[in-house]
């Protein structure tokens, strides 16, 4: 197996693991903010890993640059979207969950 495919496989596997744990967190975490934290990891970290992995097996330089640009833009925009949603929920008066129900 050529080295670039090895790198690609490792990055894709990492991305898949993070996506899985993110989905699991969305289902299992106790409140809105914690769930959004899990979902945000999928959006930002996992997609960067997957797109980076694909860069290594793409033969075409132009496509590689496009993939990198997509990864970069998502890396900036996805956390901002998560932030906006969290901020909106906070302004709307949603209190975070605490153990024992204390504020």
């Amino acid at each position: 197996m050529p080295w670039n495919e090895v790198v690609c496989t490792v990055l894709l596997a990492l991305g898949c693991v993070i996506t899985f744990s993110g989905s699991y967190g969305v289902l299992r975490f106790p409140d809105f903010y914690a769930r959004l934290h899990a979902a945000g990891k999928t959006d930002s970290l996992a997609q960067v890993l997957i797109l980076l992995g694909l860069v290594f097996v793409t033969p075409d330089v132009l496509t590689q640059i496009k993939l990198l640009m997509v990864a970069f833009i998502l890396l900036i925009v996805a956390p901002t979207a998560t932030f906006a949603i969290t901020k909106a929920a906070h302004l709307d008066g949603l209190r975070p969950w605490t153990r024992g129900g204390r504020q």
Binding site: I73, I76, V77, T80, F83, A84, K87
Partner: peptide, 18 residues
Amino acid sequence: VMSDQVILRVVSKLSIPF
């Protein structure tokens, strides 16, 4: 108006041209 949110303001200004 959400322009008092620094993060949203900066990121939207960055991304609108693109």
